[in-house]
Amino acid sequence: MTEGMEQRRKERVDRGIKVRTDSLYALLSAGEIAYLALPRLVLILGLLLLPLVVPGMYWQRVITITCIYGLLAVSFDFLAHYVGLVSLGGAFFVGTGGYLAAIANTQMGLSPWLTVPSAALAGGVLCTLLLLPCLPLRGVYFAIISLMYPLFSARVIEALDILGGTDGIMGIDGFPNRIVEQYAPVVLLLLILFGLRRLVTTDFGLVVRGVKDNDQAIRASGINVTYFKAVAVFVSASMGCLGGACLVHIYMWSGISQFALDFSILPIAATVIGGSGTLVGPVLGCLILVPISEMLREFGTLRIVFYALILVAFIIFKSEGLMVWGRRKYHQFERWTRI
């Protein structure tokens, strides 16, 4: 401590309006209601209006894909930061959902209205059953094994030449019309997003979060940890499968590329960039990453390099992510105070 050097520290103070809107009294004034509703409205209206604003079919398609990646990212975020299971194999969910929808559509002739929800549910059950033996594993071990699952599935399909082998399943029906195709992923994403946000604050959600914090204490409380993990995995897997099923109907094709790395790594990168554990952050991350990666498409694999590097940079330098940062700026102001 040098003499005369002024010691300062950064202080963060809640904005007045944040404090006023913490309780029921927020309803007393329009300004305060607006303060609460604004971020949510921006998200909802933004996602709904975006397809109308962007030029051309191509970018509308990009937005649809973004929403599907958004589903995957939210699924990853939920599993990693609320349940404590870091899954590096999001592609496994996508692939399972995709193939199930493809089979339901081509073999059983169900319409997309039925295949998408049934693939999500059946896929969720299937993935949960397959992952069940790994649920006691934690940390690195779960991460490693979840990384193996999509690789394994792809290799098995290749080796056994089942489900269309390397060619995939073709001739899948598309969504009935453009509007459905455009808005189904958007609406699903919004519903799931707000549904999950509600879920994690219920008592059930508290237990699931407790599993992440301290599973020993959960066991000591007479709660079956594996059961809760399984339910959480089901929720997360269903979301992934939902994304996969939508994807299959959009591309009208299902193949082993759905088990590809892209579906695992991009949602993770989006989550880290957007803000881990915020659920909304990952969507934000996807809104940034997916269009950029589309723009870089002509550079081939360079885009993977690009978002791998962004991911590393964010993990190391800005691990809180954009959403946490933005939320802090919205609710608090900072000032330097003398010590």
Partner: peptide
């Protein structure tokens, strides 16, 4: 469960 208030900590065993 560090991220929860003390009384919320009890919601978890009460859910058992």
């Amino acid at each position: 469960y560090y991220s929860l208030p003390a009384y919320k900590n009890l919601v978890i065993p009460l859910f058992s």
